[in-house]
Nucleic acid binder design. Structure first.
Lengths: 133, 133
DNA sequence: TTATAGTTTAGAATCATTCTAATAATCTAA
DNA sequence: TTAGATTATTAGAATGATTCTAAACTATAA
């Protein structure tokens, strides 16, 4: 069975052609940062037609199932990341592109006290890059 | 002269009543995290009418002039911060509220290598909180 | 097979933000 | 001071990303 179908089956998602195409794309590269807009462009270029709504539905579903991680960068765009390890990002605004920073590339010698009654949910670190000129 | 007017004058912004109201609000508390929507609600409650467009225009202008700092949190909302020191944030999604983390509350013992041809522009650290239960 | 539950889709709706262009307020020079 | 120029404010339209809706379609279990 196709790898993509196995992944979908394991998450109880029916392997529709659209889903298979999306999961296939994610599996091709081992780490992917995507945006709904980027994905639909990719499929258009390959003459595969999937509606925007379906792209969003599925990216969100895959995020719910823990196959992708969903987050936002400095601007108003939703990103999905297939790297599920704890990690951080460089953001290259020039190219509108994210670059992974491995968890062990950053270490803290001091961490802030969490406010009373709360616990840490997740940490978002984005290092914005600009061109050296 | 009103403190707010002085601030505006220094930045070559005409002290219109709307601007004075906004800057006044910022000066009242020494550290403020605001959103256009939160500000307009605040003014509505005090029966001061300022249009949304003006709120946005002015917050952006104040950010351009370096009086506020503009950034985005995990969701698609634009935040303005009157704390100009280098610092980071906790985000309490329950209350839709930011809490400052002083720069010296976090220290790094290891920092990632910046990609070739690029330099660091800014670092965004957001620690998302959830309720201890 | 077929009935059912799950999916996809186009297009409408929503929400934050920006734009437009008409009106109003502030400023400057004389 | 005041006229004219410049800058601001505003309502409402426009935009762009995302979600919703409801109708048409597809996979699946029995």
């Amino acid at each position: 069975m196709l790898e993509a179908k196995k992944v979908l089956k394991k998450s109880n998602l029916r392997p529709t052609s659209q889903r298979v195409a999306i999961v296939d794309y994610i599996l091709q590269k081992n780490k992917v940062h995507i945006t709904a807009a980027k994905l639909i462009t990719h499929f258009k270029n390959k003459n595969i037609s999937i509606s925007l709504a379906t792209i969003y539905n599925n990216l969100n579903e895959l995020a719910d199932k823990g196959i992708l991680r969903k987050f936002y960068v400095n601007n108003d765009k939703m990103w999905f990341d297939s790297n599920l390890q704890d990690h951080y990002h460089f953001y290259d605004s020039e190219k509108d592109e994210l670059i992974d920073i491995d968890k062990n590339e950053i270490s803290f010698s001091k961490s802030p006290k969490i406010p009373d009654g709360k616990i840490k949910d997740s940490i978002n670190i984005i290092i914005n890059l600009k061109n050296k000129n």
